[in-house]
Each structure stands twice: as C-alpha cells, then as structure tokens.
Amino acid sequence: MTSNDSGAAPDAELMTATTDLGDALRELIEASVTTTAPTGEVAAAAELVRAAIARIDGNPRPAAQLPRLDDPSEGRRVFNPVTGIAHPLAPPLVVRAEGDGVVAEVTLGLAYEGPPTFVHGGMSALFMDQMLGSAAGAAGLWGMTAHLELDYRGPLPLQTPLVLRARVESHEGRKANISGTIALASAPEKVLVEARGLFVLPRPEKQAAYFGAVTDASGNHAPPRRPGDATALRLA
C-alpha cells in the first residue's frame, strides 16, 4: 500500500517515538555513507549505535505478527520499506491520487546510490513496484505482483527532485495490467524509467496459504483482507 499517515494511530505517543526513530535512522544512514570523519569517530559512532540497539532489541516480533502500529484495513503500514514513516530505508515516499492514477515526488540521497552520482537501478524497481501496487489500490483493485519489467532509458540523478507516476492500463477478472514512470520533476515529459507490471489477486486458497498465519500485535488471527501492499492514498 502507499500512504504513511492514514487512519488514527492506536498509540499516539508510540507513533511519535517510532516516527522520530525512523527519521533519526534515515539521517544516520545518510551520514554513514557520506561521512569523512576520522576513523576514531566512526568507531565511536558504531559503539553508540550498538548501545542504542540494546535498548530496543528485546523480544522482537515474529514475521507473521503485524507491528503494533500497523492497521492494513486503514492503509497504515509504518514499516513499509518504501512508504513507511518508521522504516529507515524508506525516503519515505508519499503517494497521492491524481487524475486516473497516482503520483509521488522524492529526492534521493547517497544512501540510494548505484553508479556514482546516480540512483541504484534496483531502487527504481522497488519504487515502481510500490507505485504500481498503489495505482491498483487507487482503482479499487487488489493483488500481488506477478510480473514486473523495467526499461531504463536514462540514469536517475541523486539529490535531484524526481516524479513517479503509475496508472492501471487494463484489468479483467483477477488480473490488472499497470504501467509507471520515473522522470525528473523539472522535465516530467522525459521518461527515464518505464515500468510495466501484472498484478493478480490470489485465489482464496492461495490467500489462506500465504497469509493464514498472520496475527495482529496481540496475537489474534488477522489475515489481511486485501492481499498486496497497496495502502490508502493521500487524496490532497
């Protein structure tokens, strides 16, 4: 799913603290890949990070248990690696409905670098997969990625505003064909990355096999009602 602020948080103080931690970790990641500090300072920073880990590492949740702050029915996935406000790998991307599809803007730092000064191609695939899923959700379609292909028409520069778009091209039954693009925000008509994907809603027996063991944070059985990760959108 996409957005990062839909629905009311079950614990406002925890949401604030978790969001603050995500922001701090994003800053740490960017600092760690851009630092020119002396060796001793880098080593000292590593020790501080390990001390911080020790404060929060007790009793981690199992993979089949949703985080305390998540509510997929409300479109809230705070640890989504693209749109989650608490995930240190997420920019985070804020996706909104626009016209017959969805759009998002983002500026990526050196933490996303592949070739020097340019975005890693795998990151483009990650963001496009999310955007295509978001377009499906915006159209009232739900499913999981069955096929994704990208054409790289030009490199994406780092530290430069980008615009990402996606829309449903066609759908029939359980299948939806969706396309997306990435371009410079200053030249949105010149596509640098083009994506095409097939999203399929799993049959009920597959849904049960994939998600039947999922619980909420209290351990109650809570398989997602809408397979996929296309969360609620910011509408304005």
Rank of each mutant, 00 (worst) to 15 (best):
R50S: 14
D71F: 01
P60F: 11
G75A: 14
A63G: 13
S32I: 09
A51E: 14
I56H: 05
A63W: 04
R76G: 07
D70V: 10
A37G: 06
A63C: 06
L69F: 03
A31G: 08
T35E: 07
A52N: 08
E30M: 07
I56A: 07
T34N: 13
T83N: 06
E30S: 06
L48V: 11
A86M: 04
P72A: 06
A37R: 12
P62T: 15
R68K: 05
D71W: 01
S73D: 15
G84W: 06
V78I: 15
A31Q: 08
N59M: 09
I85C: 06
A54E: 14
G84I: 11
I29R: 13
I85K: 03
I29G: 04
N80C: 15
E30N: 04
R50P: 00
A37M: 10
Q65L: 01
V82T: 06
G75H: 04
D57W: 00
E47S: 13
D71K: 04
N59I: 05
A86F: 02
D71N: 14
G40S: 13
A43M: 13
I53R: 09
V78N: 04
G84R: 01
A46S: 09
E74K: 07
V82E: 05
G58V: 10
V78Y: 01
A31P: 01
I56E: 03
D70S: 13
P72C: 12
I53S: 09
I85F: 01
A86C: 13
I53V: 14
F79M: 13
T83S: 11
P81N: 05
V49M: 06
I56P: 00
E41I: 12
A64I: 01
A37S: 12
T83L: 01
R77L: 15
D71Y: 03
A86E: 02
R55T: 15
P60Y: 07
P67E: 11
S73P: 05
D57G: 05
E74W: 02
V82A: 09
Q65F: 00
R50I: 11
R68D: 01
I85R: 06
S32P: 00
A37N: 07
L66G: 06
P72D: 11
D57N: 07
E30H: 02
G40D: 15
A31F: 02
V78D: 10
A52Y: 03
